[in-house]
Structures are given as C-alpha cells and as structure tokens.
C-alpha cells in the first residue's frame, strides 16, 4: 500500500504537465531553434552543408545602422512606458480609491473599452487623426492656426501616441490592483502627523506602489519594443524598429539567420529588463531572495 502511494504521480505535477508541455513546445523549442538558426550559415533542414557562424551577430555589431535601430526601439519603448505611467498612475489611483461602485465600474469600462477594438483598427483611427489630411491638421488649418500641416505622422511622436493609447490599459490594470491593496490608514496617519496630502502621497503611497509601477512598466515596455503594426503604420517605414527589421529580413531578404539573430537581440534586451526588474523589486521591497 505504502509503495503504491509512493509511486503514484503527484496530483499537482499531473495538473501542471499540460501547461509545462505547452510551454516547452511553443516557447522553449521555437526560441531554441531561433538561437540555433542565428548561429548557422543556412537552414539545415533544406540545405546540405551548413556550419556554425558568428557572422549574423558580427553584422549587427559592426554596422552602426543596426545599433541605431536597437536604440530607436529601446527609446520608443522607454518613452511609451513613461508616458503610459504618467497617464495611467493618476487614473489607477482614482480607480483604486473611488468609493462609488458605479463610478469604479464606469472607470473600468472606460479603461477596458479600447481593448475591445483590434490594434489595427485603433492604429488606423490614429492615422485618420494624425495624417496631413487628418482631423487635427484639417481643423487647425481651417481655423487659420497653421498654414502647413503639422508633421504628426511618420515621426516617433506619432508612434508613441499610438502605442500609449494601446498600452495604457495594461499599466492602469496592473497599478489599480497594487494601489488598491495599500492601506489608506497609512496615508491618514501620515497626514495626522502633519504631512501634507502631497507629501503623504510621495512618502507613503508612491513607495508602496513601486512594485505595481515596475510590473506595469515592464509589461508596457516589453509590449512596446516588440510592437509591429503601430510603428509600421504610424511611422510610415521611416522609423525603423527591430520588429520591422526582423520582418523585412524574413519577408523580403529571405535571410532567416540574420532575422533570428535580431530576434535573439530583442529577446536579450527583454531578459535584461526582467533581471533588472527583479533586482529593483528586491531592493525596494527588501526581499533579497527575489534577486
């Protein structure tokens, strides 16, 4: 009886098995293959002679153009994250502290509503607003405020506007949960001890909400640097980011190896960010084991 119980598979393990298999099949295997392809001279499945090479990575490092593309991608990601945080934090704070259930439901609906529409549709909507013949420029010109259309599209600013609109809900939803768990009595205690509402917020609420800020920022940054549709439509191909370059290498240059190397670079940037996030979270929350 006892031997039977020792050989019986753990129930939890069996429960996890499907998702573990799914994760291995659709995450580790593709990434492993991508890493392999980035270090080969060709596709071993269809080419008879392939060898290991570092030429794809050397091309990235040796040509300043690719380093500029990487920096543009990171810059767009950082600006998008900061703007999403600036817009999302007050909204999340309001949602977390609002007493009215109806008010909370309405705010939640307002945040979630844009997510019910596809990214492509939302980006096209921004195009109709930001283009030279778009609503904003036509309105300003008809009012006589400008003579020539403002360059709102085909710029990094245009891309950031589109990305912020798409990713603000991710920031708000992440922050709302964290801020909602902060005991309001801590702020009240700070104010009773003479702190102004602003100081109570800066010294109590803000530090306690840092895990939410970091988690939301990580999510928005990762999504922004891997975005394809919005940068390509609002940037008009004049702002080159890593996902656009990867697609170009696969679809038009048929250079799978180089595209894989660029993909690995994008992955490494994301991983470095996760590691930095864990360290920062460990430091602010005092949980050293997180590191």
């Amino acid at each position: 009886m006892s031997s039977a119980s020792t050989t019986r598979p753990n129930g939890v393990a069996l429960f996890i098995l499907p998702s573990a298999l799914l994760f291995a099949l659709f995450f580790f295997l593709p990434i492993g293959l991508m890493a392999l392809m980035s270090a080969l001279t060709g596709n071993p499945v269809v080419m008879p002679k392939v060898a290991f090479t570092t030429r794809h990575y050397a091309r990235i490092v040796n040509d300043p153009y690719y380093l500029e593309v990487i920096w543009t991608t990171i810059r767009i990601g950082l600006v998008t994250t900061l703007v999403a945080l600036a817009i999302g934090y007050p909204l999340a704070h309001w949602m977390a502290r609002i007493k009215s259930r109806t008010g909370h439901a309405l705010l939640l609906m307002a945040v979630l509503a844009p997510m019910l529409t596809g990214i492509v549709v939302r980006t096209f909507a921004w195009m109709t607003l930001l283009s030279d013949k778009g609503v904003i420029n036509q309105t300003l010109m008809s009012l006589g405020l400008i003579a020539q259309p403002l360059k709102l599209m085909y710029t990094e600013t245009g891309i950031v506007i589109g990305l912020v609109h798409i990713y603000v809900p991710f920031m708000v939803l992440t922050l709302t949960g964290v801020i909602g768990r902060i005991d309001e009595r801590l702020e009240q205690a700070a104010e009773n001890l003479g702190a102004s509402p602003l100081r109570a917020f800066l010294e109590v609420t803000l530090p306690l909400s840092l895990p939410g800020i970091l988690a939301g920022s990580l999510l928005v940054f990762a999504l922004a640097i891997s975005a394809y549709v919005t940068p390509i439509l609002l940037g008009g191909f004049q702002i080159m980011t890593l996902p656009i370059l990867i697609y170009q290498q696969i679809s038009a240059n048929f250079n799978v190896g180089f595209a894989a190397a660029l993909g690995i670079v994008l992955l490494v940037i994301s991983l470095m960010l996760v590691i930095a996030y864990n360290r920062a979270l460990g430091l602010v929350s005092g949980q050293r084991e997180l590191q």
Binding site: N43, V46, I250, S251, A252, F254, V256
Partner: peptide
C-alpha cells in the same frame, strides 16, 4: 503574402 519565406521553410 509573403509566399517565399513559407516556400523557403
């Protein structure tokens, strides 16, 4: 579209 990467793979 694109077709060629699929044929290539």
């Amino acid at each position: 579209f694109p077709y060629l990467p699929k044929l290539q793979a």
